[in-house]
Structure formats: structure tokens, C-alpha cells
């Protein structure tokens, strides 16, 4: 590799900033503060770091859909692109509050009531609010530490029947246990198109699961799944019930498929990559070529013992 011999060229501030941003944006869920500390130290350039942080944190917070406590016990606000009013202002539709956010510190410093212009029309709010209640119930049952929010994403000012509109459901659950060297996150986003003319609701769901285990190593799980479904346009309450049950159905099914992957993969993986001595039990140890007497030459292996011949034939058959 050329790096070692290359003359030491000092990187420009711009290059350093881009590198720092890359590291920050690739932090596993819940670990950006640890990454930030290390990046700052390897960068050794607080100016470049500051710029990188101010660009990377907002993007990371929104991608991870982090959840922040609003001050004065006003509940929580999810940092998502759906709720973004300004770079540091995020709407919580349930409480109609806007959280003022410090992205780099990942805290909500203040909150204010949302203005009428920032909130959906009463007609849309009826659908949104009914769905929020149903999703909240589902999340409370399915996720021990889940957070959810329902946003009006299109046609929030529609006053009554006759126009299309769109809602988005966001579900997030994160775990962070540095003492056990692991973190994990579940994120799902559901877009629901209310098609007034054909009286149909179309749902698009995207689920992502990540896990990181870093004791004596670095192992990461990264899964992604997208799906579609539809149902009929009904009253706000009935829409809410069918949407929540569709979400429940798909997420439960997805969890089932993850579990199936876990059941099938270890076998497949180790079969594909290596032999599991499981097949031969402990006796395989004795047959390994490093044992005394059979270490010297490959052709000796076949003469060494009948057991080895058995093994050889088993290998060929398989």
C-alpha cells in the first residue's frame, strides 16, 4: 500500500471535514456521541470538526429518528424529516408543540406551541388523531420501549372530502447498553395515501433493524424490508383501526421472518463456510492434520488410519 511511503501531505480543512462527516454519519444508532469524541481526537482540528458536526448531526438525528424529551414535562418529540419545520424546530403532532433542538448536544432546549399554520386542518386532524391513538395502543403492546408519531405529510390543509391527502406513521425503538457492549434500533415508517377519488388507502411500509455488538470485536446486524398494502377509505376511526391492524400484521410477519433467518442462517453459514465438527463430534479433532504423525506430508494423510479414509469418503459424498 502506498500510504506508508507517500510523503506526508497535510490534509486541507475541507478534506478533514468530509472525513469527519463520513465517520459521524456512519455511527451505529445511539453511538454518535462516542464516535464524535474519537473523531475529534483523530482530527485534531476543532474548526473542521465543528463544521462537520453541525452538518452531520442533523442528518444523523433525522435518519435515526431520535427521540428527545421536551422541557417542562411536555412530553417527547421525534426528530424526523416529517416533523421538521426549520433545521432546529420539530413538531410533535400529538401535543401540538414544537421542540427547539440542539442537534449536536442532542437535546431539546425549549418548546413552543405550534401555530395554526403549522397544524393540519380539523378534517385531517380527525384522521391523524384517530390513527395516532390506534398506533399508540399497538406500539404500547408490541414495543417495550417504543415511540411513535403520526404526521400529516400531504394535503394538511384539505378542509373536507373530495381531495387526496397523506399521513405518515413513524415507529422507533432503541436500546443502548454500553455496559453490555451493545446497541440496537428498530425503525419503521409507514406512508398512507388517502385516495379520495377511488376511496382506497394505499400503504407503503419500510422497516429497518440494526444491532451492534462490540465486545472483543465489532459485529453489526443491518436489515431492511419494504412492503405494500391497501384498504378501503372509511370513517377516521375505522381507517385508524384497519391501518393499525395492517401495520401490526406486517411488522409481526417481518419479525417472524427475522426469526426464521436466525434459525436457518447459522446452519447455512457454517455449512457454506466451514465444516462444523458437530457432524463428526469430538473425533474430528483427532483427524486433523496437525496431530503428530500425520503432519509431515499430505499423501500420508490417506494412509494414516482407516478413520481418515472414512472421513475422506464422507467428504466426497457430501
Amino acid at each position: 500500500m502506498a500510504e506508508e511511503d507517500a510523503p506526508e501531505v497535510e490534509l486541507s480543512g475541507e478534506q478533514k471535514k468530509e472525513i469527519a462527516k463520513w465517520f459521524l454519519l456512519h455511527s451505529p444508532g445511539g453511538e454518535i456521541q462516542y464516535v464524535a469524541k474519537d473523531v475529534r481526537s483523530v482530527l485534531d482540528d476543532d474548526g473542521a470538526y465543528g463544521e462537520a458536526a453541525s452538518e452531520a448531526f442533523p442528518a444523523y438525528n433525522k435518519a435515526q429518528m431520535i427521540c428527545l424529551d421536551m422541557p417542562r414535562g411536555m412530553g417527547e418529540v421525534l426528530i424526523t424529516s416529517f416533523g421538521e419545520l426549520e433545521e432546529n424546530q420539530f413538531l410533535d403532532p400529538r401535543t401540538a408543540q414544537v421542540g427547539i433542538v440542539d442537534h449536536v448536544k442532542q437535546v431539546c432546549t425549549d418548546a413552543r406551541p405550534a401555530t395554526d399554520e403549522e397544524l393540519p386542518s380539523p378534517y385531517i386532524e380527525e384522521f391523524r388523531c384517530a390513527l395516532d391513538a390506534e398506533v399508540l395502543k399497538y406500539v404500547g403492546e408490541a414495543y417495550p420501549k417504543g415511540v411513535c408519531s403520526v404526521y400529516s405529510t400531504k394535503g394538511k390543509d384539505v378542509e373536507g372530502p373530495g381531495s387526496d391527502f397523506e399521513l405518515a406513521v413513524v415507529i422507533q425503538a432503541a436500546r443502548n447498553s454500553p455496559q453490555n457492549f451493545c446497541t440496537g434500533s428498530w425503525r419503521s415508517v409507514w406512508n398512507i395515501e388517502f385516495k379520495d377519488d377511488i376511496q382506497i388507502l394505499e400503504l407503503r411500509g419500510k422497516m429497518q433493524v440494526g444491532a451492534h455488538y462490540f465486545e472483543e470485536g465489532n459485529v453489526q446486524l443491518d436489515t431492511k424490508h419494504e412492503c405494500k398494502d391497501s384498504t378501503i377509505f372509511q370513517s377516521p376511526e375505522d381507517c385508524a383501526i384497519s391501518i393499525a391492524s395492517i401495520i401490526r400484521h406486517h411488522e409481526t410477519e417481518y419479525l417472524g421472518s427475522l426469526e426464521a433467518s436466525y434459525t436457518n442462517l447459522p446452519d447455512n453459514t457454517f455449512k457454506v463456510t466451514i465444516y462444523f465438527p458437530r457432524i463428526y463430534g469430538e473425533s474430528f479433532q483427532l483427524l486433523a492434520p496437525f496431530s503428530p504423525g500425520i503432519t509431515r506430508c499430505s499423501s500420508v494423510l490417506q494412509e494414516i488410519s482407516p478413520k481418515n479414509l472414512e472421513l475422506k469418503s464422507e467428504i466426497t459424498i457430501r
Partner: peptide
């Protein structure tokens, strides 16, 4: 290491997924 890999790759990360959203039977 095969045992560790089995435990970490398929054990620990599955445990995490099930902590985030416990399997259906429990719900």
C-alpha cells in the same frame, strides 16, 4: 471462535432484536 461467532452473530444480535420488539407469542 466458531462458538463465539455463533453466540455473538446469531445469539446476541437476535437477543437485541427481541428486546426491541418481543416475538408475537409474548405480545
Amino acid at each position: 471462535m466458531r462458538n463465539s461467532l455463533d453466540q455473538v452473530y446469531f445469539g446476541k444480535t437476535k437477543e437485541m432484536v427481541c428486546t426491541l420488539r418481543p416475538p408475537a407469542e409474548i405480545t
